[in-house]
Amino acid sequence: MVKSEEDLRRGANPLSLRPVEILDVRRETPDVNTYTLRLVDGSRFRFRPGQFNMVSVIGIGESALSMSSDPEGTEALAEGVFQHTIRVVGNVTRALARLRAGDRFWIRGPYGNGWPLEQASGDLLIIAGGIGLAPLRPAIYRRLAGNPGRLEILYGARTPGDMPFRDEFPVWQEGGARLLLTADKADEGAEWPYRVGLVTALLDEVEVSPARGQVFICGPEGMMKSVVGALSKRGWPPEEIFVSLERRMECGQKTCGRCQIADVYVCQDGPVFSYAAVRDLLGVDL
């Protein structure tokens, strides 16, 4: 959790919750919604791209979910709003899917380290699978807002219909991003001018070169492993590859023990790790 001087002075209870109000629910895909939110106390919610909240629907439980909005976008600065983009997979996300604009739920956070954007000063290659695009979206907007380096985005999902943020893709492209898309399978009869197949197949088309950039990857762990493997073969050094890992978390505070992989806690040491730091952990069956 990011500490502020004020929090430390107050000795804040890191496990207590803050209510948020839903301003808007937007259906991205059949099982993914984007929630536009604001803290009920009216303060601006600050976070870094790649960080997450522990999100509560009290009575149902709590779940670790990444923020998906630009933390320094116009709306964030002007109105203090932020977004979560959430796929329905379990009890908490199912309960969230029942909520509407005007409803409230609870959060604590932000937790975790986030993407090393300040370190990624050259070209940036972003590779996402499925809902893994959500925690990368804040990083995409931060890059588009200022960095002169090249930005390439490789994105794959099960079907074109499973891709969130589709209407923003043209905006990203106009902003200078090169966007390469693929779907595991295209819908019958639907227009799909992009590739069909796994995201690794797009790697041959990448223009960003290993010598002068970083890679940020988020997706299912199997996909990340194969992407990392393929990048390594193409000469990307492990120090320049960053992955966001997902583990079960109860606390976000390094005390519940759930997210440990060997001596690493995903909640605070991560969720973003350089491949160099976790290569052995991912390879070995821990």
């Binding site: 009575g59 439980g61 109860e250 023990g257």
Partner: peptide, 16 residues
């Protein structure tokens, strides 16, 4: 020290 964090609600659904 590992732990679960979970919610427990009474039958009358008045308190969690």
């Amino acid at each position: 020290y590992c732990a679960d964090i979970f919610d427990e609600t009474d039958f009358s659904l008045t308190e969690t």
